[in-house]
Write a protein that binds this DNA or RNA. Structure first.
Length: 152
DNA sequence: GCCAACGTTGGC
DNA sequence: GCCAACGTTGGC
């Protein structure tokens, strides 16, 4: 089983929003970055755990945990001209973009702020904390996962 | 709102 | 294949 971190803007889609979806499950559409797509398409497996990260908000940080419940399949929003994620280069033959389904697992007792993650010596090499990192999906090592859980 | 850091696009 | 211009992300 692998560990991941996925970013979402809580104004758009928060961990609470995920919890309130039918079966607490939602498809993770709108990823339009090849590195992030490749991780979803090639590496994310059912049962993998995901830190749900709130970005672009007053206190960015990890809100809780979700898990992968459906492996990669074409992101239909790429083929929908009405969607803000529409990509004219995507087609049924060549969907170009993919998504997975994630299910709410639990919300932390408190949001774990980015500032605290930055201050933790054990997380010094974490991808999330690298300067200029803008990937919306990234791998988390088992060590990092456990360190972070111990901080909540 | 600012700005650094990237990723993508497209002309050549 | 290079690279400038542009767009986006996301913390602050």
């Amino acid at each position: 089983m692998a560990y991941w971190l996925m970013k979402s803007e809580p104004d758009t889609f928060s961990l609470e929003d995920l919890r309130s979806r039918p079966n607490s499950t939602e498809h993770w559409d709108g990823v339009r970055n090849y590195q992030a797509r490749n991780m979803m398409r090639d590496q994310m497996k059912c049962g993998d755990k995901v830190f749900f990260y709130h970005s672009s908000c007053p206190v960015p940080g990890i809100a809780g945990i979700a898990k992968v419940v459906k492996e990669a399949y074409p992101d239909a929003s790429a083929q929908n001209p009405e969607s803000r994620y529409y990509d004219p280069k995507a087609s049924a033959d060549n969907p170009r973009w993919f998504m997975v389904d994630v299910k709410f697992e639990r919300k932390f007792k408190r949001l774990l702020p980015l500032a605290e993650l930055k201050a933790a010596p054990a997380l010094g090499s974490m991808a999330l904390l690298r300067k200029g990192n803008r990937l919306s999906i990234m791998a988390v090592s088992k060590d990092e996962w456990q360190q972070i859980l111990a901080m909540v």
